[in-house]
Design a binder for these strands. Structure first.
Lengths: 202, 202
DNA sequence: ACCTGAACACCGTTCAAGT
DNA sequence: ACCTGAACACCGTTCAAGT
């Protein structure tokens, strides 16, 4: 008779995937190296053979999630390309409401994050805007995306003040598609206005 | 001879102030109930008489910091009022680079946060915009502020990838005043454009 | 009313060892 | 090469007790 748990061998991939799954379903405080190991049917220290420490594990999870974000389409006019990326990002933030708050709180960047950033900058450069404007606009977009990530996860979150006994609040209500579209158009209008101001473009 | 440490009696205020100071100087991971108690020259459990738990302590710290943010001036035209609040918020975020990442990662709101939110909404209402636009614009502003809080604390933070041995990165480089002003003008231009679109206002 | 101290159920990680 | 297990130095918090 075969073993009930096939124990398909540990690997970096399997660990990171399990960490992501656990994070999504149980929340951040449930993600400990020990519980994760237990779930994988393995000694806590086994994880450390594949990843140096918990911080590295978290960053691997972040990068896995960000890999789902498509890069802006260089064939599209910049407004359309930005709108598409904005919507995709919102979709992702809604899909991973436990991951993004951790991601934006982290002081470390991930490779994928840098890649997306670069792609946005290239998009604006190709649209013909001045290089220093592109850098600043990209920064503004990035800044806004951070905010979307949190708002998507927690909503406006003005009401539920903390009460010691109470269970942690559910991840919602998320930003609606309408609200995000409103925000995106607001940003695009702002970018257009600022860029027209420094050069006759649009 | 008087005691060397006067031990000026424990109080909620003293605890919260010490927590904020510790957070700023030593970073988040150095803020444990035990270390805080040691610094206050007191048994760890003494803190629990004044505050229910660590989460409540953190929220008290957040509210203390946010109390420094002045409300928008109702006498000013909305663009000027928003610009002033934006700059103040950036100044605050720069001044508390260890606090804001925790604040924006938290799922709980604080009373002061709700108060600021309400004041922004009132400002836009008084400016004569439609109520539902005001709500959405306020949400966009809030969303952007969250991003500013993180960018101010960590910068764009695309480069320093995590290395296991290395010490945690310093809190900077912060967003510069120029970059923030660029962002603020971008947002104001966007708000103006969106609002003009739904009604003939400016 | 305000503070203490032992105890409990956890953490992440080091280090030497096993296969 | 890959995994284990004991051990260390921590956590936040409960609970009964002291003043």
């Amino acid at each position: 008779m075969a073993a009930r748990k096939p124990k398909p061998r540990l690997s970096r991939e399997r660990i990171v995937a399990a960490a992501l799954a656990r994070l999504e379903t149980e929340g951040a405080e449930a993600l400990s190296m020990r519980k994760l190991a237990a779930e994988l049917g393995v000694d806590p220290m086994s994880i450390y053979y594949h990843l140096p420490d918990k911080q590295a594990l978290l960053l691997a999870v972040f990068d896995l999630v960000l890999a789902e974000l498509p890069l802006p389409d260089p064939a599209l006019p910049w407004r359309d390309a930005l709108r598409a990326v904005g919507r995709q990002f919102h979709r992702l933030a809604i899909a991973h409401p436990r991951v993004f708050p951790l991601l934006i709180a982290s002081p470390y960047g991930t490779p994928r994050e840098a890649q997306v950033h670069q792609a946005l900058r290239d998009l604006l450069l190709r649209a013909g805007f001045r290089a220093e404007d592109c850098a600043r606009v990209t920064q503004a977009i990035y800044t806004y995306a951070v905010g979307v990530a949190r708002t998507a996860a927690h909503g406006l979150r003005l009401k539920p003040f903390y009460e010691p006994g109470a269970p942690p609040p559910p991840p919602g209500p998320p930003m609606t598609a309408d609200e995000v579209d409103f925000s995106i158009e607001l940003m695009i209008a702002g970018i257009g206005a600022v860029l027209e101001r420094t050069q006759g473009k649009g």
